[in-house]
């Protein structure tokens, strides 16, 4: 599989650690009802200029992993119980909070689905962007405001000069998301995590925001982790994909590979359930059942109760990551059958 895209993984010299590497991460939530195992051994890596899409449904652990990377997990109830998160080789989880804080904004930044509640309603947007420079760079307020204006122009906010003193509620959803992006890239982070950045937006606005993100990524050679449930958005922008289910990565692959040759029944099912033109009037393929409760993840492969390929071994043995192809692996005992397309 060759990636011809701009922003394809640059040839990283051997021995250089990836920009960001999550290794065997485990996160659990200790609630009154019991322990919910939200993330169970997630590993992925991202290099500069790369876009990694983390695909999953609600409860798959995709956002929790991102929160663990950023160090903004609500503790309690959330606890990282195992694993490491290495930024250029240094384990963020081993750092004291004071040191770790300096990484947020500076090296790692994140934008959220809900831009309105992510912005403080009592300060103007210009002031909030300027704060980033005041706090992290020790700039004066007026210099910060100048930088804020530059950033607002960079993210294509019309009439930015007049609007820099406006408050978040005076902007539309798409504009607010642009302001969030401006804040996130203010300090030139190397890694940007976008958690469902367009889910709350209309489809025409979604296209604008994704185009902006892509452009900024290319200009600044950022690593972009795009968390989403939308197979369409993934196909448009990602270089590689990690598919998550019940807190695990069930399949990892370069983007072209996964759409052409899914090797896990869950991925295959998701792709098959997309309404297609030539399927008009026919029943959609539907994955049966519902995602498991994170407090009672079934033994063996977590997907086995919903899986058409499942056999006894799937109920007993948690599948390892079987290599399927170049940079492509699947956590399914019967991945070969999936690839061959002998579904159900």
């Amino acid at each position: 599989m060759t990636l011809t895209e701009t922003g394809s993984p640059a040839a990283v010299p051997a021995g250089t650690p990836p920009l960001l590497e999550v290794d065997n991460l485990h996160v659990e939530f200790r609630t009154r009802e019991g322990v919910a195992k939200a993330v169970n051994g997630v590993s992925y890596a991202i290099n500069a200029g790369e876009t990694l899409a983390v695909l999953g449904e609600s409860g798959s652990g995709k956002s929790v992993t991102a929160q663990a990377i950023m160090g903004i997990l609500d503790t309690p109830p959330g606890f990282v119980t195992k694993g490491s998160i290495r930024y250029q080789g240094d384990d963020l989880l081993q750092m004291p909070e004071g040191v770790r804080r300096t990484y947020r904004g500076e090296h790692l930044a994140m934008i959220f689905q809900d831009a309105l509640s992510s912005l403080n309603p009592v300060f103007s947007v210009g002031y909030q962007i300027a704060e980033m420079f005041r706090v992290h760079r020790g700039m004066s307020r007026s210099d910060g405001m100048k930088k804020a204006l530059e950033l607002m122009e960079l993210v294509n906010i019309p009439a930015a000069r007049e609007r820099v003193k406006d408050y978040p509620h005076q902007f539309s959803g798409g504009m607010r998301q642009r302001i969030m992006i401006a804040m996130a890239i203010a300090l030139d982070p190397e890694v940007l995590i976008a958690d469902e950045p367009t889910t709350a937006l209309d489809v025409t606005v979604q296209a604008q925001i994704m185009a902006l993100l892509k452009e900024l990524q290319r200009e600044r050679d950022m690593g972009l982790i795009l968390i989403t449930h939308d197979l369409g958005v993934v196909a448009d922008v990602a270089d590689k994909i990690a598919v998550m289910y019940a807190g695990r990565i069930v399949e990892r692959a370069p983007v072209y590979d996964i759409y052409a040759r899914p090797a896990h029944p869950y991925t295959e099912g998701l792709l098959a359930s997309i309404p297609r033109v030539d399927m008009k009037g026919q029943e959609l393929f539907a994955i049966k059942g519902i995602p498991p409760s994170l407090m009672r993840i079934p033994p063996g492969c977590p997907f086995n109760p919903r899986c058409g390929y499942a056999r006894d071994i799937c109920r007993e043995q948690d599948p390892p990551n079987y290599p399927v192809g170049d940079a492509h692996d699947s956590a399914c005992h019967f991945w070969e059958e999936v690839v061959d397309g002998t579904r159900r």
Partner: peptide, 23 residues
């Protein structure tokens, strides 16, 4: 997206309370 997620806010806890909805 879970409808409760939009209310989750700044900490972006889309699955922050991951324990509860799936239970």
């Amino acid at each position: 997206s879970d409808p409760t997620a939009s209310a989750a806010g700044v900490t972006g806890t889309l699955e922050g309370h991951a324990g509860s909805p799936p239970t």
